[in-house]
Amino acid sequence: MSQNLDQALADFCPGLPFAVALSGGADSTALLLACVQRWPGQVRAVHIHHGLQHAADDFAAHCRAMCEDLGVPLLVCHVQAGHAPGQSPEDAARQARYAALAESVQTEWPDVRDVAVAQHADDQVETLLIALSRGAGLPGLASMPAQWQRSGLNWHRPFLTVPGAALRDWLGERGQAWVEDPTNSNEQFTRNRIRARLLPVLAEAFPAFRDTFARSAAHAAQAQEVLDEVAAHDLAHVGIPPRITALQALSRARQALVLRHWLRTIHATTPSTAQLNELLDQVADCNTRGHRLHLKVGQGHVLRQGTVLSWSPR
């Protein structure tokens, strides 16, 4: 086992028993096998059947056979991941996958509170590069966290420091088969283009890029934690809903910070940069009782109601 993989497993401390999200691909196969070896009898698996391609039934059959060989309980969940207008199919599938994972684990295994997923160092680099290409702020540049909480569960990505090639080599040494998703070679998807075209060039120019990019993402995540604390403090001061005069007493940068925090944490929506700048301009112009404000922001609208701002989903 590679040194990176050894260290990754040593740093991974899930509550027992726990579940592994198993697609049947190399990454999740390595995660399941390594976890079963480390915590025998404590691991369960969940396979999400998207039904998005003809090979989906074969993926599920492979997972069933492997889990039977390993003596691991397996749930196979069928989901339909249709995407909304303006939403990418990849994002829709990801959201449906996490929702199905959480629901199935909580329904079938109420004693399970931890779920491990198999994204690795290359996935982290791809996430960071996509964020940079979109002009993302710190939340995007922080990329994927190694641990987080969602839907009442503790989620883990123990392989974020391990290159994908190391996982495949490890499986090959053990003669463990996996399935190849045919869409992984389709370069119409941004991640596949990055994997096929950019990562080899980065590896040649900057051999340690996975480690250095991971450090940059970690620095961004740490900075974002501080900004979240400032935003929470400011939101407590300006109130919920935010008082316009209290907002106006803050600098424009802190107004932006607290408004993003309010919209994200209270209303589960995120403004675009253009929407937020327009909202800040309108807040600055709210100097008379008669000034009206009704702006499209995120998935709804921000309105002025007397001395405060409100948000409506319509």
Rank of each mutant, 00 (worst) to 15 (best):
residue 90 E to N: 12
residue 96 A to Y: 06
residue 104 S to V: 05
residue 102 A to I: 15
residue 110 P to V: 06
residue 115 V to A: 08
residue 113 R to E: 10
residue 102 A to P: 11
residue 121 A to W: 00
residue 108 E to K: 15
residue 107 T to D: 14
residue 102 A to M: 10
residue 110 P to G: 07
residue 85 P to F: 05
residue 99 A to I: 08
residue 103 E to G: 13
residue 103 E to R: 15
residue 121 A to C: 06
residue 123 D to K: 02
residue 118 A to T: 04
residue 123 D to W: 00
residue 111 D to S: 08
residue 105 V to K: 05
residue 96 A to F: 02
residue 97 R to S: 15
residue 105 V to A: 14
residue 113 R to P: 15
residue 97 R to I: 14
residue 85 P to S: 14
residue 117 V to C: 07
residue 119 Q to N: 12
residue 111 D to G: 14
residue 124 Q to S: 02
residue 101 L to S: 04
residue 109 W to R: 15
residue 118 A to R: 02
residue 115 V to R: 01
residue 101 L to M: 05
residue 109 W to P: 11
residue 91 D to N: 14
residue 105 V to R: 09
residue 90 E to S: 14
residue 89 P to A: 03
residue 114 D to L: 00
residue 100 A to L: 13
residue 118 A to N: 04
residue 115 V to K: 00
residue 125 V to S: 01
residue 102 A to W: 10
residue 117 V to S: 07
residue 96 A to Q: 12
residue 118 A to E: 00
residue 123 D to Y: 02
residue 92 A to H: 15
residue 86 G to N: 03
residue 111 D to Y: 11
residue 120 H to I: 01
residue 92 A to P: 11
residue 102 A to H: 01
residue 110 P to F: 05
residue 116 A to D: 06
residue 108 E to V: 07
residue 97 R to H: 12
residue 110 P to R: 14
residue 87 Q to L: 01
residue 87 Q to C: 07
residue 121 A to E: 02
residue 93 A to S: 12
residue 118 A to V: 09
residue 92 A to N: 01
residue 97 R to W: 13
residue 109 W to Y: 12
residue 119 Q to V: 04
residue 124 Q to W: 01
residue 122 D to E: 14
residue 119 Q to I: 10
residue 112 V to Y: 02
residue 99 A to P: 07
residue 110 P to E: 09
residue 86 G to W: 11
residue 94 R to N: 05
residue 96 A to G: 09
residue 124 Q to T: 03
residue 88 S to G: 08
residue 94 R to L: 09
residue 124 Q to G: 10
residue 87 Q to F: 06
residue 115 V to N: 05
residue 86 G to T: 04
residue 86 G to K: 07
residue 96 A to I: 04
residue 108 E to I: 09
residue 113 R to H: 15
residue 88 S to A: 13
residue 89 P to T: 02
residue 115 V to L: 08
residue 100 A to C: 13
residue 124 Q to A: 04
residue 97 R to K: 13
residue 121 A to Y: 01
residue 105 V to D: 07
residue 97 R to Q: 14
